[in-house]
Design a protein around this nucleic acid. Structure first.
Length: 529
RNA sequence: GGGUCUGUGGCGCAGCCAGGUAGCGCACCGGACUUUUAAUCCGGUUGUCGUGGGUCCAAAUCCCACCAGACCCGCCA
Protein backbone atom coordinates (compact mmCIF):
# COMPACT_ATOMS: atom_id res chain seq x y z
CA UNK A 1 0.00 0.00 0.00
CA UNK A 2 1.06 3.54 -0.47
CA UNK A 3 2.43 4.86 2.77
CA UNK A 4 -0.14 6.85 4.56
CA UNK A 5 0.01 8.38 7.97
CA UNK A 6 -1.89 6.22 10.44
CA UNK A 7 -4.57 8.27 12.17
CA UNK A 8 -4.82 7.47 15.86
CA UNK A 9 -5.24 3.74 16.26
CA UNK A 10 -6.10 3.23 12.62
CA UNK A 11 -9.81 2.39 12.95
CA UNK A 12 -12.92 4.04 11.57
CA UNK A 13 -13.43 5.55 15.01
CA UNK A 14 -10.17 7.45 14.77
CA UNK A 15 -10.96 8.61 11.29
CA UNK A 16 -14.32 9.91 12.46
CA UNK A 17 -12.82 11.73 15.42
CA UNK A 18 -10.21 13.19 13.09
CA UNK A 19 -12.87 14.50 10.73
CA UNK A 20 -14.67 16.00 13.68
CA UNK A 21 -11.52 17.81 14.82
CA UNK A 22 -10.82 19.08 11.33
CA UNK A 23 -14.34 20.42 11.16
CA UNK A 24 -14.15 22.13 14.53
CA UNK A 25 -10.87 23.66 13.46
CA UNK A 26 -12.34 25.09 10.29
CA UNK A 27 -15.36 26.37 12.23
CA UNK A 28 -12.98 28.01 14.63
CA UNK A 29 -14.90 26.76 17.61
CA UNK A 30 -13.65 26.37 21.13
CA UNK A 31 -12.38 22.80 21.56
CA UNK A 32 -11.85 22.77 25.31
CA UNK A 33 -14.56 20.20 25.86
CA UNK A 34 -15.97 18.16 23.00
CA UNK A 35 -19.25 16.61 24.02
CA UNK A 36 -20.71 13.65 22.20
CA UNK A 37 -24.31 12.62 22.60
CA UNK A 38 -26.39 9.50 22.43
CA UNK A 39 -30.15 9.52 22.60
CA UNK A 40 -31.81 6.66 24.42
CA UNK A 41 -35.34 5.72 23.58
CA UNK A 42 -37.32 5.13 26.73
CA UNK A 43 -40.55 3.76 25.35
CA UNK A 44 -39.46 0.25 24.39
CA UNK A 45 -37.06 -2.39 25.60
CA UNK A 46 -33.58 -1.12 24.79
CA UNK A 47 -32.02 -3.60 22.39
CA UNK A 48 -28.43 -3.87 21.31
CA UNK A 49 -28.90 -1.24 18.60
CA UNK A 50 -29.79 1.45 21.14
CA UNK A 51 -26.80 0.33 23.13
CA UNK A 52 -24.67 0.58 20.02
CA UNK A 53 -25.47 4.23 19.57
CA UNK A 54 -24.06 5.03 22.99
CA UNK A 55 -21.16 2.61 22.77
CA UNK A 56 -20.01 4.03 19.48
CA UNK A 57 -20.36 7.59 20.70
CA UNK A 58 -18.20 6.56 23.63
CA UNK A 59 -15.66 5.19 21.16
CA UNK A 60 -15.48 8.61 19.53
CA UNK A 61 -15.00 10.15 22.95
CA UNK A 62 -12.08 7.78 23.55
CA UNK A 63 -10.56 8.66 20.20
CA UNK A 64 -10.85 12.38 20.94
CA UNK A 65 -9.17 11.88 24.28
CA UNK A 66 -6.48 9.87 22.58
CA UNK A 67 -5.86 12.90 20.38
CA UNK A 68 -5.40 14.95 23.52
CA UNK A 69 -8.82 16.58 23.88
CA UNK A 70 -11.29 16.52 26.72
CA UNK A 71 -14.53 14.79 25.90
CA UNK A 72 -17.68 13.60 27.55
CA UNK A 73 -20.58 11.35 26.59
CA UNK A 74 -24.06 12.66 27.29
CA UNK A 75 -26.64 9.90 27.47
CA UNK A 76 -29.99 11.58 27.00
CA UNK A 77 -33.17 9.71 27.75
CA UNK A 78 -36.15 10.74 25.64
CA UNK A 79 -38.52 10.12 28.50
CA UNK A 80 -41.08 12.69 27.49
CA UNK A 81 -41.87 10.61 24.43
CA UNK A 82 -45.39 9.33 24.62
CA UNK A 83 -46.18 5.65 24.91
CA UNK A 84 -47.56 4.63 21.55
CA UNK A 85 -47.71 0.87 21.73
CA UNK A 86 -47.69 -1.57 24.59
CA UNK A 87 -44.60 -3.76 24.22
CA UNK A 88 -45.25 -7.43 23.95
CA UNK A 89 -45.34 -9.12 27.31
CA UNK A 90 -46.27 -5.95 29.16
CA UNK A 91 -49.53 -5.73 31.10
CA UNK A 92 -52.51 -4.44 29.16
CA UNK A 93 -53.25 -2.14 32.08
CA UNK A 94 -50.86 0.21 30.30
CA UNK A 95 -53.65 0.87 27.84
CA UNK A 96 -54.97 3.77 29.90
CA UNK A 97 -51.54 5.41 29.75
CA UNK A 98 -51.18 5.44 25.98
CA UNK A 99 -50.01 8.81 24.65
CA UNK A 100 -48.74 9.87 28.04
CA UNK A 101 -45.04 10.68 28.40
CA UNK A 102 -43.27 7.56 29.57
CA UNK A 103 -41.87 9.41 32.57
CA UNK A 104 -45.41 10.04 33.83
CA UNK A 105 -46.45 6.42 33.59
CA UNK A 106 -45.99 4.23 36.66
CA UNK A 107 -43.48 1.40 36.29
CA UNK A 108 -45.58 -1.70 35.63
CA UNK A 109 -42.92 -3.74 37.41
CA UNK A 110 -42.83 -1.44 40.38
CA UNK A 111 -39.06 -1.22 40.59
CA UNK A 112 -38.48 2.26 39.19
CA UNK A 113 -40.13 5.63 39.54
CA UNK A 114 -41.70 5.41 36.10
CA UNK A 115 -42.11 3.31 33.00
CA UNK A 116 -39.53 5.51 31.28
CA UNK A 117 -36.94 5.11 33.99
CA UNK A 118 -37.49 1.37 33.98
CA UNK A 119 -36.58 1.25 30.30
CA UNK A 120 -33.70 3.69 30.55
CA UNK A 121 -32.25 1.77 33.48
CA UNK A 122 -32.04 -1.38 31.42
CA UNK A 123 -29.89 0.43 28.92
CA UNK A 124 -27.79 2.25 31.49
CA UNK A 125 -27.14 -1.00 33.32
CA UNK A 126 -26.00 -2.47 30.02
CA UNK A 127 -23.57 0.41 29.57
CA UNK A 128 -22.32 -0.01 33.12
CA UNK A 129 -21.64 -3.69 32.53
CA UNK A 130 -19.64 -2.83 29.43
CA UNK A 131 -17.61 -0.25 31.33
CA UNK A 132 -18.99 2.70 29.37
CA UNK A 133 -18.98 5.97 31.31
CA UNK A 134 -21.59 8.64 30.62
CA UNK A 135 -23.39 11.63 31.98
CA UNK A 136 -27.09 10.89 32.24
CA UNK A 137 -29.67 13.48 31.29
CA UNK A 138 -33.42 13.21 30.94
CA UNK A 139 -35.94 15.05 28.81
CA UNK A 140 -38.15 15.38 31.87
CA UNK A 141 -35.58 17.42 33.81
CA UNK A 142 -34.45 19.29 30.75
CA UNK A 143 -37.90 20.70 30.06
CA UNK A 144 -38.87 21.18 33.69
CA UNK A 145 -35.75 23.24 34.25
CA UNK A 146 -36.37 25.19 31.09
CA UNK A 147 -32.93 24.34 29.70
CA UNK A 148 -34.23 24.59 26.16
CA UNK A 149 -36.42 27.66 26.58
CA UNK A 150 -34.31 29.96 24.41
CA UNK A 151 -34.23 27.41 21.61
CA UNK A 152 -37.92 26.58 21.89
CA UNK A 153 -38.74 30.27 21.68
CA UNK A 154 -36.58 30.83 18.61
CA UNK A 155 -37.99 27.77 16.92
CA UNK A 156 -41.60 28.72 17.60
CA UNK A 157 -41.05 32.26 16.38
CA UNK A 158 -39.66 30.81 13.17
CA UNK A 159 -42.16 27.99 12.95
CA UNK A 160 -43.57 29.04 9.60
CA UNK A 161 -40.17 29.15 7.97
CA UNK A 162 -39.31 25.80 9.54
CA UNK A 163 -42.59 24.24 8.49
CA UNK A 164 -41.94 25.20 4.87
CA UNK A 165 -38.39 23.95 5.01
CA UNK A 166 -39.48 20.59 6.41
CA UNK A 167 -41.89 20.25 3.54
CA UNK A 168 -39.11 21.10 1.11
CA UNK A 169 -36.51 18.81 2.64
CA UNK A 170 -38.52 15.73 3.46
CA UNK A 171 -41.98 16.29 2.04
CA UNK A 172 -43.80 16.32 5.34
CA UNK A 173 -46.55 18.92 5.38
CA UNK A 174 -47.69 18.60 8.94
CA UNK A 175 -45.63 21.45 10.37
CA UNK A 176 -46.97 23.90 7.87
CA UNK A 177 -50.20 23.51 9.80
CA UNK A 178 -49.08 22.86 13.35
CA UNK A 179 -46.46 24.20 15.69
CA UNK A 180 -43.54 21.78 16.20
CA UNK A 181 -44.26 21.55 19.90
CA UNK A 182 -46.32 19.02 21.81
CA UNK A 183 -47.60 20.21 25.16
CA UNK A 184 -48.57 17.70 27.79
CA UNK A 185 -52.23 18.30 28.54
CA UNK A 186 -52.43 19.67 32.06
CA UNK A 187 -55.73 17.93 32.57
CA UNK A 188 -55.19 14.38 31.28
CA UNK A 189 -51.37 14.19 31.04
CA UNK A 190 -51.47 13.19 27.40
CA UNK A 191 -49.09 14.24 24.70
CA UNK A 192 -50.07 14.18 21.00
CA UNK A 193 -53.72 14.81 21.79
CA UNK A 194 -52.90 18.35 22.84
CA UNK A 195 -52.72 20.27 19.61
CA UNK A 196 -50.68 23.46 19.74
CA UNK A 197 -52.29 26.16 17.65
CA UNK A 198 -50.89 29.44 18.86
CA UNK A 199 -47.66 30.72 20.34
CA UNK A 200 -47.86 33.80 22.53
CA UNK A 201 -44.37 35.18 22.11
CA UNK A 202 -44.41 37.73 24.89
CA UNK A 203 -45.65 35.34 27.54
CA UNK A 204 -43.72 32.35 26.14
CA UNK A 205 -46.89 30.35 26.32
CA UNK A 206 -48.60 27.97 23.98
CA UNK A 207 -52.32 27.61 23.49
CA UNK A 208 -53.55 24.13 22.86
CA UNK A 209 -56.69 22.10 22.66
CA UNK A 210 -56.78 18.50 23.77
CA UNK A 211 -58.73 16.52 21.22
CA UNK A 212 -59.04 13.11 19.61
CA UNK A 213 -56.13 12.15 17.45
CA UNK A 214 -54.88 9.23 15.42
CA UNK A 215 -51.69 7.46 16.32
CA UNK A 216 -50.96 4.83 13.75
CA UNK A 217 -54.26 3.10 13.41
CA UNK A 218 -55.30 3.82 16.95
CA UNK A 219 -57.70 6.56 17.85
CA UNK A 220 -56.80 8.34 21.07
CA UNK A 221 -59.34 10.28 23.00
CA UNK A 222 -58.55 13.82 23.98
CA UNK A 223 -60.20 15.35 27.04
CA UNK A 224 -61.38 18.56 25.42
CA UNK A 225 -59.24 20.71 27.68
CA UNK A 226 -58.47 24.14 26.27
CA UNK A 227 -55.16 24.90 27.89
CA UNK A 228 -52.06 26.97 28.04
CA UNK A 229 -48.49 25.70 28.45
CA UNK A 230 -45.48 27.69 29.61
CA UNK A 231 -42.52 26.61 27.48
CA UNK A 232 -40.05 27.60 30.16
CA UNK A 233 -41.22 25.09 32.73
CA UNK A 234 -44.28 23.11 31.80
CA UNK A 235 -44.04 19.61 30.45
CA UNK A 236 -44.18 19.26 26.75
CA UNK A 237 -41.65 18.72 24.06
CA UNK A 238 -40.43 19.85 20.73
CA UNK A 239 -41.17 17.61 17.78
CA UNK A 240 -38.30 15.37 16.85
CA UNK A 241 -37.79 17.24 13.63
CA UNK A 242 -36.47 20.22 15.60
CA UNK A 243 -35.67 18.92 19.05
CA UNK A 244 -32.18 17.58 18.40
CA UNK A 245 -31.11 20.96 17.13
CA UNK A 246 -32.32 22.64 20.32
CA UNK A 247 -30.53 20.09 22.45
CA UNK A 248 -27.32 20.29 20.47
CA UNK A 249 -27.08 23.97 21.05
CA UNK A 250 -28.22 23.95 24.67
CA UNK A 251 -25.75 21.19 25.60
CA UNK A 252 -23.06 22.22 23.11
CA UNK A 253 -22.94 18.81 21.43
CA UNK A 254 -20.25 18.27 18.79
CA UNK A 255 -20.97 14.73 17.69
CA UNK A 256 -23.95 12.46 17.43
CA UNK A 257 -24.36 9.23 15.52
CA UNK A 258 -27.71 8.24 14.12
CA UNK A 259 -29.47 5.26 12.63
CA UNK A 260 -30.65 5.44 9.08
CA UNK A 261 -34.27 5.34 10.18
CA UNK A 262 -34.01 8.92 11.45
CA UNK A 263 -31.98 10.24 8.54
CA UNK A 264 -34.71 12.70 7.58
CA UNK A 265 -35.00 14.08 11.09
CA UNK A 266 -31.27 14.65 11.24
CA UNK A 267 -31.33 16.40 7.90
CA UNK A 268 -33.96 18.82 9.16
CA UNK A 269 -32.31 19.27 12.54
CA UNK A 270 -28.98 20.09 10.94
CA UNK A 271 -30.67 22.83 8.98
CA UNK A 272 -32.50 24.16 12.02
CA UNK A 273 -29.28 24.19 14.04
CA UNK A 274 -27.31 25.96 11.33
CA UNK A 275 -29.89 28.41 10.00
CA UNK A 276 -32.34 29.07 12.79
CA UNK A 277 -30.32 28.60 15.97
CA UNK A 278 -27.02 29.62 14.36
CA UNK A 279 -25.28 26.72 16.04
CA UNK A 280 -23.19 24.67 13.61
CA UNK A 281 -24.66 21.19 13.81
CA UNK A 282 -22.60 18.36 15.31
CA UNK A 283 -20.54 16.03 13.20
CA UNK A 284 -22.45 12.86 12.37
CA UNK A 285 -22.06 9.33 11.32
CA UNK A 286 -24.89 7.21 10.05
CA UNK A 287 -25.13 3.57 10.96
CA UNK A 288 -27.26 0.73 9.76
CA UNK A 289 -29.89 -0.75 11.97
CA UNK A 290 -29.41 -4.16 13.40
CA UNK A 291 -31.96 -6.50 11.96
CA UNK A 292 -33.17 -9.71 13.41
CA UNK A 293 -32.47 -12.89 11.52
CA UNK A 294 -35.57 -12.60 9.44
CA UNK A 295 -34.27 -9.32 8.04
CA UNK A 296 -36.81 -7.23 9.93
CA UNK A 297 -35.91 -4.15 11.88
CA UNK A 298 -35.61 -4.96 15.54
CA UNK A 299 -38.63 -3.37 17.07
CA UNK A 300 -38.12 -1.95 20.49
CA UNK A 301 -41.70 -2.62 21.37
CA UNK A 302 -41.41 -6.35 20.81
CA UNK A 303 -40.44 -8.62 23.63
CA UNK A 304 -37.69 -11.21 23.53
CA UNK A 305 -35.18 -8.77 22.19
CA UNK A 306 -31.41 -8.97 21.95
CA UNK A 307 -30.55 -6.79 24.92
CA UNK A 308 -27.16 -6.39 26.55
CA UNK A 309 -28.46 -8.35 29.51
CA UNK A 310 -29.53 -11.29 27.35
CA UNK A 311 -26.29 -11.23 25.40
CA UNK A 312 -24.18 -11.23 28.55
CA UNK A 313 -25.71 -14.55 29.57
CA UNK A 314 -23.82 -16.12 26.69
CA UNK A 315 -21.01 -13.82 25.72
CA UNK A 316 -18.52 -11.50 27.38
CA UNK A 317 -18.77 -7.73 27.46
CA UNK A 318 -15.86 -7.69 25.04
CA UNK A 319 -17.85 -9.68 22.51
CA UNK A 320 -20.47 -6.92 22.47
CA UNK A 321 -17.86 -4.21 22.19
CA UNK A 322 -16.22 -6.10 19.34
CA UNK A 323 -19.53 -6.38 17.53
CA UNK A 324 -20.11 -2.65 17.86
CA UNK A 325 -16.60 -1.41 17.18
CA UNK A 326 -15.50 -3.67 14.38
CA UNK A 327 -17.39 -1.66 11.86
CA UNK A 328 -20.16 0.84 11.49
CA UNK A 329 -21.45 0.35 7.97
CA UNK A 330 -23.31 -2.55 6.52
CA UNK A 331 -26.69 -3.97 7.35
CA UNK A 332 -26.45 -6.57 10.02
CA UNK A 333 -28.75 -9.39 10.78
CA UNK A 334 -28.03 -10.08 14.36
CA UNK A 335 -28.82 -12.88 16.72
CA UNK A 336 -27.38 -14.78 19.62
CA UNK A 337 -25.92 -17.26 17.16
CA UNK A 338 -23.34 -14.61 16.28
CA UNK A 339 -21.80 -14.83 19.72
CA UNK A 340 -19.48 -17.81 19.16
CA UNK A 341 -17.65 -16.28 16.23
CA UNK A 342 -17.28 -12.96 18.02
CA UNK A 343 -15.89 -14.72 21.06
CA UNK A 344 -13.32 -16.50 18.95
CA UNK A 345 -12.56 -13.40 16.92
CA UNK A 346 -11.65 -11.55 20.09
CA UNK A 347 -9.07 -14.22 20.89
CA UNK A 348 -7.64 -13.84 17.44
CA UNK A 349 -7.34 -10.08 17.86
CA UNK A 350 -5.63 -10.60 21.17
CA UNK A 351 -3.14 -12.94 19.54
CA UNK A 352 -2.39 -10.35 16.90
CA UNK A 353 -2.03 -7.66 19.52
CA UNK A 354 0.48 -9.70 21.49
CA UNK A 355 2.30 -10.76 18.35
CA UNK A 356 1.37 -14.42 18.57
CA UNK A 357 -0.18 -14.31 15.13
CA UNK A 358 1.71 -12.64 12.32
CA UNK A 359 -0.07 -11.02 9.41
CA UNK A 360 1.81 -10.10 6.28
CA UNK A 361 -0.18 -6.93 5.67
CA UNK A 362 1.10 -4.27 8.02
CA UNK A 363 -1.99 -2.08 7.55
CA UNK A 364 -4.21 -4.93 8.71
CA UNK A 365 -2.05 -5.49 11.76
CA UNK A 366 -2.39 -1.84 12.73
CA UNK A 367 -6.13 -1.98 12.25
CA UNK A 368 -6.52 -5.21 14.22
CA UNK A 369 -4.41 -3.89 17.07
CA UNK A 370 -6.40 -0.68 17.07
CA UNK A 371 -9.66 -2.53 17.16
CA UNK A 372 -8.40 -4.66 20.02
CA UNK A 373 -7.58 -1.55 21.98
CA UNK A 374 -10.99 -0.03 21.44
CA UNK A 375 -12.68 -3.25 22.46
CA UNK A 376 -10.68 -2.86 25.66
CA UNK A 377 -11.74 0.80 25.83
CA UNK A 378 -8.16 1.87 25.10
CA UNK A 379 -6.98 0.12 28.24
CA UNK A 380 -5.75 -3.24 26.99
CA UNK A 381 -4.56 -5.93 29.40
CA UNK A 382 -0.84 -6.33 30.00
CA UNK A 383 -0.85 -9.99 29.18
CA UNK A 384 -2.75 -12.31 26.93
CA UNK A 385 -5.26 -14.59 28.58
CA UNK A 386 -5.57 -18.31 28.06
CA UNK A 387 -7.62 -19.01 24.97
CA UNK A 388 -10.13 -21.74 24.43
CA UNK A 389 -12.30 -21.90 21.36
CA UNK A 390 -15.80 -20.94 22.40
CA UNK A 391 -17.23 -23.42 19.91
CA UNK A 392 -15.30 -26.20 21.54
CA UNK A 393 -16.64 -25.14 24.91
CA UNK A 394 -20.17 -25.27 23.56
CA UNK A 395 -19.62 -28.79 22.24
CA UNK A 396 -18.30 -29.91 25.57
CA UNK A 397 -21.10 -28.20 27.45
CA UNK A 398 -23.69 -29.89 25.27
CA UNK A 399 -22.28 -33.20 26.37
CA UNK A 400 -21.78 -32.47 30.03
CA UNK A 401 -24.88 -31.09 31.58
CA UNK A 402 -24.30 -32.16 35.13
CA UNK A 403 -21.18 -31.43 37.07
CA UNK A 404 -20.32 -29.37 34.06
CA UNK A 405 -17.58 -27.12 35.33
CA UNK A 406 -15.54 -30.00 36.68
CA UNK A 407 -16.02 -32.32 33.71
CA UNK A 408 -15.41 -29.72 31.05
CA UNK A 409 -12.24 -28.43 32.69
CA UNK A 410 -11.03 -32.02 33.03
CA UNK A 411 -11.53 -32.55 29.30
CA UNK A 412 -9.76 -29.30 28.47
CA UNK A 413 -6.80 -30.38 30.57
CA UNK A 414 -6.88 -33.85 28.93
CA UNK A 415 -6.89 -32.31 25.48
CA UNK A 416 -4.05 -30.06 26.51
CA UNK A 417 -6.11 -27.05 25.47
CA UNK A 418 -5.38 -25.33 28.75
CA UNK A 419 -2.55 -25.71 31.18
CA UNK A 420 -4.40 -24.70 34.29
CA UNK A 421 -7.82 -23.63 35.39
CA UNK A 422 -8.37 -19.96 36.03
CA UNK A 423 -11.42 -17.90 36.81
CA UNK A 424 -11.70 -16.60 33.26
CA UNK A 425 -11.96 -20.11 31.89
CA UNK A 426 -14.58 -20.97 34.47
CA UNK A 427 -16.57 -17.91 33.47
CA UNK A 428 -16.38 -18.93 29.82
CA UNK A 429 -17.67 -22.38 30.65
CA UNK A 430 -20.67 -20.85 32.40
CA UNK A 431 -21.38 -18.65 29.37
CA UNK A 432 -20.90 -21.44 26.85
CA UNK A 433 -23.01 -23.66 29.09
CA UNK A 434 -25.89 -21.20 28.99
CA UNK A 435 -25.53 -21.03 25.25
CA UNK A 436 -25.52 -24.80 24.90
CA UNK A 437 -28.56 -25.15 27.16
CA UNK A 438 -30.63 -22.45 25.49
CA UNK A 439 -29.72 -22.83 21.84
CA UNK A 440 -28.99 -26.48 21.34
CA UNK A 441 -32.07 -26.75 19.22
CA UNK A 442 -31.66 -30.36 18.25
CA UNK A 443 -35.16 -31.62 18.36
CA UNK A 444 -35.83 -34.59 20.52
CA UNK A 445 -35.16 -37.72 18.56
CA UNK A 446 -37.71 -40.41 18.81
CA UNK A 447 -36.01 -43.47 20.13
CA UNK A 448 -37.17 -46.73 18.69
CA UNK A 449 -36.33 -49.81 20.68
CA UNK A 450 -37.05 -53.36 19.69
CA UNK A 451 -36.65 -56.42 21.88
CA UNK A 452 -33.07 -57.18 21.05
CA UNK A 453 -31.97 -53.59 21.58
CA UNK A 454 -33.66 -53.54 24.95
CA UNK A 455 -31.92 -56.73 25.87
CA UNK A 456 -28.59 -55.25 24.78
CA UNK A 457 -29.19 -52.15 26.85
CA UNK A 458 -29.99 -54.33 29.82
CA UNK A 459 -26.70 -56.15 29.38
CA UNK A 460 -24.72 -52.97 29.03
CA UNK A 461 -26.31 -51.62 32.17
CA UNK A 462 -25.44 -54.83 33.99
CA UNK A 463 -21.90 -54.52 32.78
CA UNK A 464 -21.65 -50.92 33.90
CA UNK A 465 -23.02 -51.79 37.31
CA UNK A 466 -20.18 -54.19 37.90
CA UNK A 467 -16.65 -53.05 38.60
CA UNK A 468 -14.63 -53.06 35.42
CA UNK A 469 -11.77 -51.12 33.98
CA UNK A 470 -13.00 -48.13 31.98
CA UNK A 471 -11.14 -49.17 28.85
CA UNK A 472 -13.28 -52.29 28.59
CA UNK A 473 -16.52 -50.37 28.32
CA UNK A 474 -16.00 -49.58 24.66
CA UNK A 475 -15.05 -53.16 23.98
CA UNK A 476 -17.99 -54.61 25.85
CA UNK A 477 -20.42 -52.69 23.73
CA UNK A 478 -19.08 -54.34 20.61
CA UNK A 479 -19.27 -57.73 22.23
CA UNK A 480 -22.80 -57.20 23.43
CA UNK A 481 -23.97 -56.05 20.05
CA UNK A 482 -22.49 -59.10 18.38
CA UNK A 483 -23.95 -61.41 20.98
CA UNK A 484 -27.39 -59.96 20.25
CA UNK A 485 -27.01 -59.89 16.49
CA UNK A 486 -27.18 -56.14 16.35
CA UNK A 487 -25.06 -53.97 14.12
CA UNK A 488 -22.62 -52.10 16.43
CA UNK A 489 -23.54 -48.99 14.52
CA UNK A 490 -27.17 -49.25 15.56
CA UNK A 491 -26.36 -49.91 19.17
CA UNK A 492 -24.04 -46.93 19.36
CA UNK A 493 -26.63 -44.79 17.73
CA UNK A 494 -29.21 -45.84 20.26
CA UNK A 495 -26.86 -45.09 23.11
CA UNK A 496 -26.18 -41.60 21.80
CA UNK A 497 -29.86 -41.04 21.34
CA UNK A 498 -30.54 -41.99 24.91
CA UNK A 499 -27.74 -40.02 26.44
CA UNK A 500 -27.39 -37.00 24.17
CA UNK A 501 -30.50 -36.94 22.02
CA UNK A 502 -28.30 -37.06 18.94
CA UNK A 503 -27.21 -39.75 16.52
CA UNK A 504 -23.56 -39.12 17.17
CA UNK A 505 -21.28 -38.15 19.97
CA UNK A 506 -17.93 -38.52 21.62
CA UNK A 507 -16.15 -41.80 22.08
CA UNK A 508 -18.52 -43.56 24.31
CA UNK A 509 -16.35 -45.60 26.67
CA UNK A 510 -14.52 -42.70 28.25
CA UNK A 511 -17.67 -40.64 28.00
CA UNK A 512 -19.69 -43.07 30.09
CA UNK A 513 -16.88 -43.12 32.55
CA UNK A 514 -16.90 -39.34 32.73
CA UNK A 515 -20.56 -38.92 33.45
CA UNK A 516 -20.58 -41.84 35.82
CA UNK A 517 -21.23 -45.43 34.98
CA UNK A 518 -23.77 -45.95 37.75
CA UNK A 519 -25.84 -43.07 36.52
CA UNK A 520 -25.70 -44.30 32.94
CA UNK A 521 -26.65 -47.77 34.05
CA UNK A 522 -29.74 -46.40 35.75
CA UNK A 523 -30.75 -44.51 32.66
CA UNK A 524 -30.26 -47.57 30.47
CA UNK A 525 -32.31 -49.76 32.81
CA UNK A 526 -35.18 -47.33 32.50
CA UNK A 527 -35.09 -47.67 28.71
CA UNK A 528 -34.63 -51.45 28.78
CA UNK A 529 -37.89 -51.99 30.56
C1' G B 1 -42.33 8.99 -4.45
C1' G B 2 -37.43 9.63 -1.54
C1' G B 3 -33.25 7.16 0.73
C1' U B 4 -29.91 3.36 2.58
C1' C B 5 -27.83 -1.30 2.61
C1' U B 6 -26.79 -6.13 0.60
C1' G B 7 -25.13 -9.36 -3.71
C1' U B 8 -18.18 -13.48 -2.44
C1' G B 9 -17.36 -21.80 -2.94
C1' G B 10 -23.23 -26.38 -1.98
C1' C B 11 -25.34 -23.33 2.46
C1' G B 12 -24.41 -19.19 5.98
C1' C B 13 -21.00 -15.30 6.09
C1' A B 14 -16.02 -12.32 6.86
C1' G B 15 -12.74 -9.35 3.97
C1' C B 16 -14.61 -3.49 1.33
C1' C B 17 -15.11 2.21 5.05
C1' A B 18 -6.89 3.46 4.75
C1' G B 19 -6.43 -1.05 -2.81
C1' G B 20 -1.26 -5.35 -2.71
C1' U B 21 -1.47 -13.88 -2.63
C1' A B 22 -9.79 -14.70 -1.64
C1' G B 23 -10.73 -16.37 3.82
C1' C B 24 -13.97 -18.53 7.97
C1' G B 25 -18.02 -21.74 9.93
C1' C B 26 -21.15 -25.75 8.32
C1' A B 27 -21.11 -29.52 4.67
C1' C B 28 -17.86 -32.84 1.84
C1' C B 29 -13.14 -35.95 1.07
C1' G B 30 -8.53 -38.08 3.17
C1' G B 31 -5.30 -39.05 7.39
C1' A B 32 -4.13 -39.60 12.89
C1' C B 33 -6.18 -41.74 17.53
C1' U B 34 -9.75 -45.80 18.40
C1' U B 35 -11.15 -53.28 18.14
C1' U B 36 -15.03 -50.58 11.77
C1' U B 37 -19.72 -44.98 14.26
C1' A B 38 -18.61 -40.30 16.30
C1' A B 39 -15.96 -35.97 19.45
C1' U B 40 -11.05 -33.94 18.81
C1' C B 41 -6.59 -33.07 15.93
C1' C B 42 -4.00 -32.66 11.01
C1' G B 43 -4.49 -32.12 5.77
C1' G B 44 -7.52 -31.37 1.29
C1' U B 45 -11.57 -30.06 -2.65
C1' U B 46 -15.09 -26.43 -3.72
C1' G B 47 -14.94 -19.18 -6.34
C1' U B 48 -15.05 -15.82 -13.79
C1' C B 49 -16.14 -11.85 -5.57
C1' G B 50 -24.26 -9.60 -9.16
C1' U B 51 -23.46 -7.31 -14.51
C1' G B 52 -21.00 -3.61 -17.56
C1' G B 53 -17.67 0.34 -17.81
C1' G B 54 -13.82 3.67 -15.42
C1' U B 55 -9.35 5.08 -12.21
C1' C B 56 -4.71 2.63 -10.97
C1' C B 57 1.61 -0.58 -11.75
C1' A B 58 -2.33 -3.28 -9.02
C1' A B 59 -9.64 -3.49 -7.69
C1' A B 60 -13.86 -8.19 -3.99
C1' U B 61 -12.11 -3.29 -2.04
C1' C B 62 -12.33 3.30 -4.95
C1' C B 63 -15.78 5.93 -8.97
C1' C B 64 -20.10 5.65 -12.52
C1' A B 65 -24.23 2.99 -14.65
C1' C B 66 -27.36 -1.08 -14.54
C1' C B 67 -29.80 -5.71 -12.50
C1' A B 68 -31.72 -8.27 -8.26
C1' G B 69 -33.17 -8.59 -3.08
C1' A B 70 -33.93 -6.48 1.76
C1' C B 71 -34.89 -2.50 4.82
C1' C B 72 -36.04 2.57 6.30
C1' C B 73 -38.65 7.19 5.48
C1' G B 74 -43.11 9.49 3.31
C1' C B 75 -48.13 8.35 10.59
C1' C B 76 -45.20 9.35 15.12
C1' A B 77 -41.33 9.74 18.16
Amino acid sequence: MSKQEVIGKGTWIDKLAWELLEREKSLGRNTKLLKVESGLGASGIPHIGSLGDAVRAYGVKLALENFGFKSELVAYSDDLDGLRKIPEGFPSSLEEHLAKPVSLIPDPFGCHESYGMHMSSILLEGLDRLGIGYEFKRAYDTYRQGLLKEQIHTILVNSEKIGNKIEELVGQEKYQKFLPYFPVCSNCNRLYTAEAYEYLQDEKKIRYKCQDTLIGSKNLKGCGNDGMADITKDLGKLAWKVEFAARWQAFDIRFEAYGKDIMDSVKVNDWVADEILKFPHPHHVKYEMFLDKGGKKISKSLGNVVTAQNWLKYGTAKSILLLLYKRITGARELGFEDIPSLMDEYNELEDIFFGKIKLDNEAKVVKAKGLYQYVNLLNPPKNSSQHVSYRLLIELCKIFKENRLQLVTKKLLDYGTIKNIDSQIEELIVLAGNFADDFDTQQKIEIKLDGSLKKALQEIADFLSSENEPQYIQNSIYQISKANNIEPKDLFKTLYQIMLSTDRGPRIGPFINDIGRKKVAQTLYSYAR
